[in-house]
Design a binder for these strands. Structure first.
Lengths: 143, 143
DNA sequence: AGTTAAATTGCAATTCAATCTCAGTTTCAG
DNA sequence: CTGAAACTGAGATTGAATTGCAATTTAACT
C-alpha cells in the first residue's frame, strides 16, 4: 500500500521508482519507531539492499514530501523521522528522568489549534507538541 | 536585572563575568525578537563591542543554562533563540515559506494541556508547541 | 601594586550532518 | 531497441557548531 502511494507520487512528478528508492521505502516501513538517516542507511545495508547515503537522504525528502514520512524533530545529532502511513497523528510527552515517550492524542487539542491558526490567519499544516516533565513512575520515585 | 542574574549564575559556577560575556548578554537584551548566533555576532560588532563567534556560541549556551535565553527552534540554517527574562510563556507558528515567526498564547490551550497531563498521570513542567504552515502573506501570494 | 593560578579568549582547525557535483548507469517511452 | 531524461554513488563541499591551544585576562592573595 505504501508502495502504491509512493509509486503514484513518483509517477506524477515524472520520477522513477528505482530499486534504491524502493529499498529505502520498504526499510522505512519494515519497523516501528523513530530513526535518523544514518540508522536507516545502516539498516538498508544490513537488509542486503543497497542505497548510498546520498540516496537515503534524497529519498527521505521525497517520502516526507508525499506524506508517508514525517520529520519528528531536529536534535543536535541530526533529524529524526518516523513513518506516518497507517499511524494517526499524535503528540508526545517525554519523561526527563527515564526518557519514556508517551504518545497521546486529543481531538479538543487539535480543534483548539485550528481555532488559534484561524485567529492568526495562519494556514497550519503540521504541528509538533512536546510536553516534558516526569512520568507516573518517576514522579513517585522522586518523593 | 538580567545582568545581576547572570553574574550570580557565573559566580556560583566559578566563572568570570568577562567583557565578552557581558557584551553578549547586553546585546541579547538590547532588542526584542528572535535571533540566530550569527546575527547576534554581527550586532555585537556593530555595537562596537567585541566577542568572537566562539565566545558568542559559548556565552549563548551559558545564557540558556541559566534560563535567561531559550532555544526556540532548529531550522535548516541553525538554531534560533530568544531572550525569555521578562517575557511570559508563549508558543510559535513558523511560516515554511518566509520563515516568519508568530508568537501566540492561549489560556485554553494551557489548561487543556494540564488536563491531558493529568489524564496520563504525567507531571508536565514545560512544553514546546510549534505550528508550521503558511502565514497570511505567503498564503495569498501562493494563489 | 605585584604575583600567580585558574579561567577565558580568539583563531584556526575540526567535526559532522546534509547537500551538491558530475561522470557513468539505469529507466522507460516510443 | 534506442536515446533522452532521470538516477546513482563517491567524493567534494558547505556551513553551523565545537574544540585545541597559545596568548591574554581576571581576581584572589600577598
Amino acid at each position: 500500500m505504501e508502495t502504491k502511494i509512493f509509486r503514484n507520487f513518483l509517477g506524477e512528478k515524472g520520477l522513477k521508482p528505482t530499486k534504491e528508492r524502493i529499498a529505502v521505502l520498504s526499510e522505512v516501513f519494515s519497523f516501528h519507531g523513530h530513526f535518523d538517516p544514518e540508522y536507516l542507511y545502516l539498516r538498508i545495508k544490513d537488509a542486503g539492499s543497497k542505497a548510498s547515503r546520498a540516496s537515503v537522504y534524497r529519498t527521505l525528502s521525497l517520502l516526507v514530501e508525499c506524506g508517508l514520512v514525517k520529520k519528528v524533530t531536529r536534535t543536535e545529532k541530526g533529524n529524526i523521522y518516523e513513518h506516518t502511513y497507517g499511524h494517526s497523528h499524535h503528540d508526545h510527552m517525554i519523561c526527563d528522568a527515564c526518557g519514556e515517550i508517551i504518545e497521546f492524542y486529543s481531538e479538543k487539542l487539535e480543534n483548539l489549534q485550528d481555532e488559534i491558526c484561524a485567529e492568526n490567519s495562519f494556514a497550519g499544516s503540521t504541528h509538533t507538541l512536546e510536553i516534558r516533565g516526569h512520568c507516573k513512575k518517576c514522579r513517585t520515585k522522586q518523593s
